[in-house]
């Protein structure tokens, strides 16, 4: 070790270039190395993003509505997430506005939903409620609680709706969240369109190809 040190200091004194230019050279090399390092890190960071295959998945899904009875709900998979289609009875639709006073955002002003979904019922056709079955709090899928009143186990004022099992957020039958729930906003309505009276396309805003 000590021999090497002596060699190095000996080399310094006989070298023509100054110590300063050696330092500059060293700094430049380290700087260039850092740039290369960043370049090398890029693919590793980029590999964390969804792959092309993951991005390509999630084609629109077609659903036959004729098999759903009034008051029944089916769940279909779209982009790996549950999409609910609930065929609401006239009583269910009538009861929706009764909830307004207890809701956080009854007019769905802050909700994520397509423009063509308007009003209290949050649907193109009031009868069919199409909704992403994913709680806006932390992404659990709420459970249907369609029974009304005390038999629902949700209290006497319950007009039917959904209860998230994870943190207890409650939603009405139009996916609107009640006040002071963990979920900040109403449930999301995905883009959807009617191909005919009984055929629904989920994942697209219009029936055109």
């Amino acid at each position: 070790m000590s021999d090497n040190k002596q060699d190095a200091s000996g080399g310094e004194s006989c070298c023509a270039c100054s110590l300063d230019s050696r330092r500059t050279m060293l700094a430049a090399t380290v700087g260039a190395g850092a740039v290369v390092g960043l370049g090398v890190a890029t693919p590793f960071v980029a590999s964390f993003m969804p792959s092309e295959r993951a991005k390509a998945a999630g084609a629109p899904v077609e659903v036959d509505l004729s098999k759903i009875k009034a008051g029944e709900m089916i769940t279909v998979e779209w982009q790996g997430k549950p999409v609910w289609i609930l065929r609401r009875t006239p009583e269910m639709i009538a009861a929706l506005s009764k909830n307004d006073a207890a809701l956080a955002d009854p007019a769905s002003e802050r909700a994520v939903q397509p423009e063509y979904v308007k009003g209290v019922a949050r649907a193109i056709k009031d009868e069919f409620f199409v909704c992403l079955g994913v709680c806006t709090h932390l992404g659990c899928s709420p459970n249907p609680k369609f029974a009304v009143g005390s038999e629902s186990g949700m209290g006497d004022a319950w007009n039917g709706g959904f209860l998230c099992p994870c943190h207890g957020s409650q939603f009405d039958l139009a996916g609107r969240v009640f006040k002071s729930m963990p979920a900040p906003t109403n449930l999301v309505i995905p883009p959807h369109a009617y191909l005919s009276d009984t055929r629904l396309l989920i994942g697209k805003d219009s029936a055109e190809a």
Binding site: F48, M49, P50, S51, A54, Q79, G80, K81
Partner: peptide
């Protein structure tokens, strides 16, 4: 959250990482 999952939902990509 998409960056962590590597997908839009918890999926095979998430499981592998």
């Amino acid at each position: 959250s998409i960056f962590i999952r590597g997908d839009f939902v918890v999926s095979d990509a998430t499981l592998n990482r």
